[in-house]
């Protein structure tokens, strides 16, 4: 059993200013997950007449991308390749103080406490992160062979769970890794070629319009990504964007 001190960001609505509050988390089983620890704390808060700490969570197995806590300054904690829900309390020590904050970025307004609005990421995808193929119009799946290497690279990029840790970890709140992962996923596949230029231009423009910051190549995003998506995809997007911009402005 662990006894911990929590410093938690509390903010009732997006209009409120919010502040850090301190909670005692006593007798926490080491086998519990981080979110189960919060469940325990919340039960105690409710029973003592308070309102529970709100946080996003759903699958609790590291794939839905809902959970989004910044733990001791690092999105999903300093452990590599992990989401918040996959952290277990055995990684903490008796007496630890844990700082829990939402995923911060201006483009992620706080909804309540640790819940933020990440719809800007959906709008980036809506701007062009897809292959425009009508249902029912597809050719046989094996009619277009794709080299295993390309398929694997596409998968590496497609593994993104859209949690926003890359943005929250970036000192500039840049959405480059998120955007690049989609550009690179679809750009690696023959099916993605017809819209390749249009896709990168519109996605990057939407990303800029949402008020995300700019990449300064510090690669905090890669380090925080629970799926360990490589910043190579950013280099690739830079290349794609440049070539698409030149074509758009000077050629066609």
């Amino acid at each position: 059993m662990l006894n911990l001190t929590l410093k938690v960001w509390r903010q009732k609505t997006s209009q409120d200013t919010g502040s850090m509050e301190t909670y005692d988390a006593k007798n926490i089983p080491e086998e519990a997950s981080f979110l189960e620890m919060l469940d325990i704390v919340n039960t105690r808060i409710i029973m003592s007449g308070g309102e529970p700490i709100h946080f996003d969570h759903d699958c609790r197995e590291g794939i839905c991308g809902s959970c989004s806590l910044t733990i001791n300054g690092v999105p999903h904690s300093k452990e590599k390749g992990i989401t918040t829900c996959q952290i277990h309390m055995r990684k903490f020590k008796e007496g630890d103080t844990i700082w829990i904050e939402p995923f911060r970025a201006r483009a992620f307004p706080v909804v309540r406490d640790l819940i933020v609005d990440r719809s800007a990421m959906d709008r980036i995808i809506a701007a062009g992160g897809y292959i425009d193929v009508r249902t029912g119009s597809a050719v046989d799946a094996n009619s277009i062979p794709i080299s295993k290497m390309d398929a694997d690279s596409a998968f590496d990029a497609a593994a993104c769970i859209g949690c926003g840790a890359c943005i929250a970890a970036c000192k500039n709140s840049s959405a480059m890794l998120f955007t690049a992962a989609k550009v690179s996923h679809l750009g690696h596949l023959p099916q993605g070629q017809p819209e390749r230029d249009k896709r990168v231009l519109s996605m990057v423009r939407q990303m800029d319009a949402e008020g995300f910051g700019n990449c300064t190549n510090q690669y905090e995003c890669e380090a925080a990504c629970p799926k360990e998506i490589s910043v190579d995809h950013i280099a690739r997007m830079n290349r794609d964007f440049t070539s698409a911009l030149i074509k758009e402005q000077l050629i066609s």
Partner: peptide, 15 residues
């Protein structure tokens, strides 16, 4: 633009 885009954490850390 970067400063405008990124609010500060109360507890900051560098990975």
């Amino acid at each position: 633009a970067n400063r405008a885009a990124s609010p500060k954490y109360q507890h900051e850390a560098v990975i």
